[in-house]
C-alpha cells in the first residue's frame, strides 16, 4: 500500500523534476523561437566546412521553429502528464542540440597545450572536443531521470534514477570546472559584470581558478559518496550560475539562458531531497 510506504512523501520529488523540466523546456522554446541563434541553425544552415548541412536559411529557420514549438508544448505536457514518449523526445532534442554544438565547433575549446600529452595527439584533441557533451549532460539527463522516477515511485527511487542524476550532474560540474580552471573569458565577464565592474580581471581569474577547483571536487564527491552538503551546495551553485546569465545579459536577454540551465540545480536538489528522505526512511524502518 502506498500509504504504508516509508517513501510515500516522495511525490514532491517528482514535482521538483517536472517543474524543473518545464522551466528548461520553456527556456529552450523561447531561445529557439528567437530564430537563427541556436546551434541547430549552425547545424542545418552552416556551410559544410564548418560541420553544417548547408540547407537554405528558410528551411533551417523552419526546422528551428519546429523545435521551438515542440519545446513549448513539452513544457506544458510535462506539467500535466509526463508521458514516456515526450520525455524521451525531450532527451533526444537535447542530445541533438549538444551534437549540433559539437559538430559545428561551438562551446569552450580546451587549451590542450596546458595538458602534458600535448595538442599533437589527435586522440586527445578528439576527446577534448567532446566537452560540450559533458557540459550539457545534466540537461539531456533531466527528462530521463524524471522518466525513471515516474517508473520507480512509490517504492522509492531506483538506483538507476539516482545514478543517472549523479553521473550527469558530476559530468556537468566537471566540464564547467575545467572551463573555469582554464579561465573561460565568458565566466570572467560574468564575474566582473556581476560585481558591477568593481572586481579586477586578476581577481576574477583567481576566483575562477578556485571555483573551478571546487566544481571538480564536488563532481568527484557526488559520484563517490552520498554527502548531503555536497548535493545542497551543487543545487545552490547551479542556481547561482544560472541566474548569473540574467545579471550579465539583463532579464529579457538572460532569463531563457537561466531557464535552460534548470537541470544544473534541479538534479542536485533532487539528490539532496532524496538522500534526506532515504535516510529518514531507513531510520524509520530500523
Amino acid at each position: 500500500m502506498q500509504s504504508d510506504s516509508p517513501y510515500r512523501s516522495l511525490a514532491p520529488l517528482r514535482w521538483i523534476l517536472r517543474i524543473g523540466l518545464a522551466v528548461q523546456c520553456a527556456g529552450h522554446a523561447y531561445w529557439l523561437a528567437l530564430g537563427g541563434m541556436s546551434p541547430l541553425m549552425s547545424l542545418f544552415w552552416g556551410q559544410r566546412d564548418t560541420g553544417g548541412l548547408a540547407l537554405s536559411e528558410t528551411t533551417a529557420l523552419g526546422i528551428e521553429a519546429g523545435f521551438a514549438w515542440f519545446f513549448a508544448a513539452a513544457a506544458l505536457i510535462v506539467l500535466v502528464r509526463p508521458w514516456r514518449g515526450v520525455l524521451l523526445a525531450i532527451a533526444g532534442c537535447q542530445l541533438l542540440l549538444v551534437t549540433a554544438m559539437w559538430r559545428t565547433g561551438q562551446g569552450f575549446a580546451l587549451d590542450l597545450s596546458a595538458i602534458p600529452v600535448g595538442s599533437w595527439s589527435p586522440g586527445v584533441a578528439w576527446v577534448a572536443s567532446l566537452l560540450p557533451f559533458a557540459a550539457h549532460l545534466a540537461r539531456v539527463a533531466l527528462p530521463l531521470v524524471l522518466l525513471l522516477v515516474e517508473r520507480s515511485l512509490p517504492g522509492g527511487l531506483s538506483r538507476m534514477a539516482e545514478w543517472t542524476a549523479r553521473v550527469a550532474i558530476a559530468c556537468t560540474f566537471a566540464a564547467h570546472g575545467l572551463e573555469a580552471v582554464q579561465h573561460n573569458f565568458e565566466f570572467i565577464n560574468m564575474l566582473i559584470v556581476s560585481s558591477r565592474h568593481s572586481m579586477s580581471e586578476g581577481m576574477a581569474t583567481r576566483l575562477l581558478t578556485a571555483i573551478g577547483a571546487i566544481d571538480l571536487l564536488v563532481a568527484l564527491l557526488v559520484v563517490s559518496r552520498r554527502i548531503h552538503s555536497v548535493a545542497w551546495y551543487m543545487a545552490f551553485w547551479g542556481l547561482v550560475t544560472a541566474l548569473a546569465r540574467i545579471s550579465l545579459l539583463g532579464w529579457s536577454g538572460g532569463w531563457f539562458h537561466a531557464a535552460s540551465r534548470a537541470a544544473h540545480f534541479v538534479l542536485p536538489l533532487m539528490l539532496a531531497f532524496w538522500w534526506n528522505l532515504d535516510r529518514s526512511a531507513r531510520r524509520t524502518v530500523e
Binding site: 573569458f185 570572467i188 565577464n189 566582473i192 559584470v193 565592474h197 579586477s200 580581471e201 576574477a204
Partner: peptide, 10 residues
C-alpha cells in the same frame, strides 16, 4: 571579443 571584454580590456 574572444578574451574578457569586461576586465583589463575595458
Amino acid at each position: 571579443t574572444e578574451v574578457a571584454a569586461a576586465g583589463d580590456q575595458r
